[in-house]
Design a protein around this nucleic acid. Structure first.
Lengths: 224, 224
DNA sequence: AATGGCTTTATTGTCGACAATTAAAACTAA
DNA sequence: TTAGTTTTAATTGTCGACAATAAAGCCATT
């Protein structure tokens, strides 16, 4: 029997351009607030404007681009205000994700996550102050907990929309978090609550964890 | 000086089709899970496939359509499982919105909201059991609180993505909530907390309010 | 009759060109 | 020179057509 191959990638030109543009925007290669010229980009990627616009519309869906009728697409502008808004949304969504993860994560998933934490701890002690790896590790931790929630909608909102914005801020605002060790400890407490199947505590701890990062940004903002 | 008219609507063909399709999908005129034929729809609206696809891509961004490469767009399918996921997300996001609304809503905004509640109460006592008005009123209440949060990202996620899905479920699952009076009372308590600037309580009450709806669906699901 | 492969048809992906709108440049008048 | 207006150029919105892929129909074989 020929099973209807539901997992056929069928990668399309617009897909590859979408992924490449997304990376260039997140990493700041295409500057914040800059206008995207359709003729220019279609020439760059050697594709037609139609397929480019397909890719651009998806990037708008991710919240990385903004569009005005008859004017065109612009890369979103970053601001401390918007960053604080993201923290608020993450606090609520990831708090819920953590509560659900405590209910739904399997023993092996939890074991994997604990192992991941150990690996990150090794890295941290080896290359102390290496902010990049640290931050990527942090996001990896959060990513896995969201996946562990088993809530597809929640996962889509966080992993396919917000996290690209989060990475964009980290790249371009360069937040070398001074709370590395504390963050690691908080991660440890969170996973303990998940292991104990204490969803209520897990949510509280995750919310505090993210809220602390937000307050950290607010504090720095006030000193500037 | 000619101020650059930033508020020029510049309504485009794709915009009107987008809005019309959105309504037809939400109200079930275009059936859940059905495949959208681009040639057919472009003929129906008397537009080219290009501008139709523009509208469709935006509907995908709203979570009303799903797309597979080389296969096309389908209206999302509804399920109790997905509805429960929406409730979880709403519980977290609207809880946060309510907390922020308690901090940020102006006195006049709060007064307007209280007035709205009274109007809804009148309607409810006049046309008892008229589920439609009741449900629309409920969503209007939630809508205003989200707006009152002052968090643009939060507002975008809820009002431009989730609420259309919520209305779609209400139209097509026809949830004549048996908790009308209780819901009204809960709304009253929530706005009281907001008026008292008690963000923590406001969040708890809103979460309970939404959680109760979710449990209501879960209960009904078990009896079927 | 049912299954597997092939052919045909239809749909989506991609392309280039024209029309409508906006932004820039050039021009005129004070 | 500067403000306002007109003209020009560039960009986006829209269109129809072709190519690539998937679905449907057909035939042969078991």
């Amino acid at each position: 029997m020929q099973t209807t191959n539901n997992l056929s990638p069928s990668i399309t030109r617009a897909d590859t351009v979408f992924i490449d543009l997304r990376q260039r925007i997140v990493e700041g290669d295409i500057k914040t607030g800059s206008k995207l010229s359709e003729p220019e980009l279609s020439k760059y990627y050697e594709i037609s404007r139609s397929t480019l616009r397909d890719a651009l519309s998806r990037l708008e869906g991710c919240g990385l681009l903004e569009r005005k009728a008859n004017i065109g697409y612009r890369v979103v502008t970053l601001s401390t205000q918007k960053l604080l808004e993201i923290f608020r949304v993450r606090e609520s969504l990831e708090g819920m994700a953590c509560r659900l993860a405590a209910q739904n994560m399997s023993a092996s998933q939890i074991a994997d996550l604990k192992h991941l934490l150990e690996v990150h701890n090794q890295h941290e002690s080896l290359q102390q102050g290496e902010a990049y790896i640290q931050e990527e590790g942090d996001l990896d931790f959060h990513f896995r907990i969201v996946m562990g929630s088993g809530n597809i909608l929640l996962t889509r909102l966080l992993c396919e929309e917000l996290y690209y914005l989060v990475r964009m801020y980290r790249y371009q605002f360069g937040m070398a978090s001074p709370r590395a060790k504390r963050a690691f400890s908080e991660h440890h407490h969170i996973i303990q609550a998940i292991e104990d199947k204490d969803g209520e505590l897990a949510e509280i701890l995750m919310r505090r964890h993210i809220s602390a990062s937000r307050k950290n940004v607010e504090k720095r903002m006030n000193t500037l």
